[in-house]
């Protein structure tokens, strides 16, 4: 079993190699008829020789977006999500961002459906890539090109109201049907300060982000997400859960300072 720690080591590697390499491998990759990003060394490290099955992760993203500061993305894999056959890990990358990692998601069979939605930051037009690993060790991939424009009638001022940082919201269905997946939405108010901005006096504003999200039903983990700085302000997640019996859902959001907000919701199963 790989751990979250392992996720972030891979991501660091990826950050170091990806940007420089992407360009130079482009021609070679094109010649071999495989997407350029597959040959990027850090992704190869992650894949460790495995060849991912292309277009097996459905990535839903607008092909043109007028506001790169918050772009809704959904990644979904068809999977029975049984104990012996489920998606374990999902990695999301934005190859054209200053650091390409977006998020790493760990599913359990309790999630019922290998699907997650969130909002991301896209610095410019680029390719978004998803890689997933199943419990059987198979690798799956998906990618989408996104064009980021700034519309003439759209706002350019990024406004963030920091009144109620760390306040969360959650919405669960009033009732679940035993063993059937239904969606859960949650959000936390947080600026997701990237560390790339300067304040009015020209001083860099230090990075301060929500870095870990965990969902548990009583003691059983449902989903764990490692978030990076390119997750949009006010991190937002939609995921699924297929409970067999009623219980208490616990959602925890952890900031990189260690501060954590925990919310609970009652889950009723018919």
């Amino acid at each position: 079993m790989q751990s979250i720690i392992h996720f972030s080591r891979v991501s660091r590697l990826l950050a170091t190699f990806l940007v420089g390499l992407l360009h130079s491998v482009h021609t070679v990759a094109a010649q071999q008829g495989r997407p350029a990003w597959e040959r990027v060394e850090a992704i190869q490290t992650l894949l460790n020789g495995a060849v991912p099955r292309p277009e097996a992760v459905r990535l839903d993203l607008p092909s043109v977006t007028q506001d790169g500061s918050s772009v809704l993305v959904t990644a979904e894999i068809d999977s029975p999500m049984t104990p012996d056959n489920h998606v374990e890990e999902l990695y999301l990358f934005a190859l054209g961002n200053p650091s390409p990692e977006l998020a790493e998601i760990r599913f359990t069979p309790l999630a019922g459906r290998a699907s997650v939605s969130t909002r991301i930051r896209l610095d410019r037009s680029q390719t978004v890539v998803a890689l997933a690993r199943t419990s059987g060790g198979d690798w799956l991939s998906g990618s989408r090109d996104v064009r980021v424009t700034v519309s003439g009638c759209l706002s350019r001022d990024a406004t963030y109201q920091a009144d109620d940082v760390m306040q969360t919201r959650v919405r669960v269905p009033p009732r679940f049907k035993a063993g059937q997946a239904s969606d859960i939405r949650t959000l936390i108010n947080h600026p997701m300060e990237t560390g790339l901005r300067k304040d009015a006096a020209g001083q860099p504003i230090p990075e301060q982000i929500i870095e870990l999200f965990q969902a548990r039903l009583d003691d059983a983990p449902v989903l764990t997400v490692r978030l990076h700085r390119a997750i949009a302000a006010n991190p937002y997640l939609v995921f699924h859960m297929a409970p067999e019996q009623s219980g208490e859902l616990t959602l925890s959001w952890e900031e990189d300072t260690g501060e954590t907000t925990v919310t609970t919701a009652e889950i009723r199963v018919d």
């Binding site: 506001d67 500061s69 918050s70 759209l154 706002s155 001022d157 990024a158 406004t159 302000a233």
Partner: peptide
């Protein structure tokens, strides 16, 4: 449905 809009300020 958005977090910002045209000419917001």
């Amino acid at each position: 449905a958005k977090d910002g809009f045209s000419k917001q300020g």
